[in-house]
């Protein structure tokens, strides 16, 4: 009589299965199906730039009434799609990209010493400000590259550069850089002073071939008065700049760069 145990065990399994399926339909937890839709629309990078711990949590927050334009990764497209799903209006934020305010690769600066430690900008910069002669410039160990979830940063010859087509504007690299030379810039603004040094012109000129020496030529040249000298280097006010390119022609050290997006 081998059938009796088989019948008992399978019968019990059947009964439990029926009870469970009844209970699960009876006590079903209704999840707002918009959460699922919003979650699908979000990029899924889980970068945390919106201020929530991940795309899942932000999707939940959106459905519970949070702003829909907090995700810098998705950009204006995402906001339009989210406003379709949620039926609310939101002004699309300006697309921001990260830009490294330094152009001092190894051929332009002097190398003070051979750094042989951990490959990390923070670690390298604790040693006499890093191997580069300019202590304000890029350390070139690629800490920003490591935190970039979008593979938008390349580090070549001791200089990090950002592919602005790939950059989503999450700002992780800005927070990571120990020299604080990565800045968030509206992507429409094409010209930037690729230098952050705070030394006097003579010193910075000696440290780096493409340093801003605060000669003020661009300040005088700019028709929109968008350029000013802050901390011994020129800074372009992106809200005033109209991308005319007058400044780049007069810069004696080629410290002003035109950024066209792709590296």
């Amino acid at each position: 009589m081998v059938l009796i145990p088989v019948a008992i065990v399978s019968g019990m399994g059947l009964i439990f299965g029926l009870i469970l399926s009844y209970v699960s339909t009876k006590f079903e937890v209704k999840v707002d199906d918009r959460i699922e839709k919003v979650r699908e629309a979000l990029p899924g990078a889980n970068c945390g730039a919106c201020g929530f711990t991940g795309c899942d949590n932000y999707a939940e927050a959106i459905v519970n009434g949070s702003e829909i334009n907090l995700c810098p990764v998705g950009g204006p497209d995402l906001v339009t799609r989210l406003s379709d799903i949620m039926g609310v209006e939101a002004k699309t934020g300006e697309k921001m990209v990260a830009r490294v305010m330094c152009n001092g690769s190894w051929d332009k600066v002097t190398i003070k010493f051979d750094y042989d430690g951990i490959i990390d900008c923070r670690s390298a910069s604790t040693m006499a400000g890093g191997p580069s002669s300019c202590v304000y410039g890029c350390v070139g160990m690629g800490s920003c590259k490591k935190v970039c979830a979008f593979d938008a940063i390349i580090v070549e010859d001791g200089l990090a550069r950002i592919d602005e087509k790939k950059c989503s504007g999450c700002g992780k690299c800005v927070a990571e850089c120990p020299k604080m030379i990565i800045k968030m810039i509206p992507s429409k603004s094409e010209y930037s002073v690729a230098c952050s040094n705070q030394e006097k012109g003579a010193v910075s000129r000696k440290n780096c071939k493409v340093a801003c020496i605060a000669c003020k030529k661009c300040v005088k040249e700019c028709p929109k008065e968008a350029i000013s000298i802050i901390d011994m280097h020129a800074v372009i006010d992106t809200s005033k700049c109209d991308n005319c390119g007058a400044c780049i022609k007069v810069c004696p050290t080629s410290a002003i760069m035109k950024y066209t997006g792709h590296i």
Binding site: I4, P5, I8, V9, M12, G13, F16, I19, L20, V23, S24, F27, E28, V29
Partner: peptide, 29 residues
Amino acid sequence: YELIYLQTIVFILVIAALVQLVETVLKKF
């Protein structure tokens, strides 16, 4: 039915179903 030897597997079946039940109820309430 003298099926004492089936105790372990049958008990596991019962417990698994119960836990599932508790989980569903907890999730709801």
